[in-house]
Nucleic acid binder design. Structure first.
Lengths: 127, 127
DNA sequence: CTCGATGCAAAGGCTTTGCAGAAAC
DNA sequence: GTTTCTGCAAAGCCTTTGCATCGAG
């Protein structure tokens, strides 16, 4: 190792401290800057790529324009406000029995799932 | 109306007959061509846009590179082979009670959900 | 003749890559 | 001196839009 990575640990740190649940690369770059960390977008891109490969981050597809990333850890699903785009982590809402039934009926081996609930957050509903 | 739409009905027809469950714009354009329908990509793009607005199609985010579209109809979830990218429609596997619990706990009004199961199809598992 | 639909081509936005400079070993 | 990380800038890829043309009413 000729030069220690500066950005990857900063990303993990930012995510650990952050209030957010899933970052786009753009948000992540902005948050690093706010934390006083100088980092080019492409460096963040490559650092995230590396962290994904190491299994420290996971990619979550919220399908709202840009891929998002979050710390690898316990599985959870997501709840998104369709109006303000707020994103919350929620416990898994997939029905185990239903999953097994699907596996049996289709012959697939189901290895993972991604769930996004769409809704209105309390603040947006009042408006 | 100065000129009746040619492409939108052909899209609905292609989707109704097709074996596929969700089309990317590229696949849709290709399927139209195979069916002998001449259609430019941008025309397909705009036709789909129109059909979405009319509620005849829905957009489904499988998050596998390109947005996909399918006929509006009964809600269903999706099962995707991570190896060959095959896509199947499956009955909803979301736990109703869990959904209600989330709504209560977060204060959100949940209006929709999107589920993608990842797995290995029978053919790919054998290899 | 009029007006919307279509095809072509270019613009736009975001992701990904190449390359030279910088920093640690 | 060697190696790898970083920043800058350009290349790519797919989506979206502008515009001239076409064709049914």
């Amino acid at each position: 190792m000729a030069r220690p990575s500066r950005i990857p640990p900063q990303i993990l740190d930012t995510m650990t401290r952050g209030a957010r649940h899933a970052w786009t690369l753009e948000q992540l770059t902005a948050d690093l800057h706010e934390g006083g960390v100088q980092a080019d977008f492409s460096s963040v891109y490559r650092a995230v790529e590396r962290l994904l490969g190491e299994g420290r981050l996971v990619r979550v597809g919220i399908d709202d324009g840009a891929p998002r990333f979050e710390l690898a850890g316990e599985h959870h699903d997501h709840l998104r406000c369709v109006r303000c785009a707020a994103l919350e982590a929620i416990p898994c809402v997939v029905d185990r029995a239903g999953l097994d039934a699907v596996a049996v009926r289709t012959g697939y081996t189901v290895t993972a799932h991604r769930v996004v609930l769409d809704g209105l957050c309390p603040a947006c509903r009042q408006r």
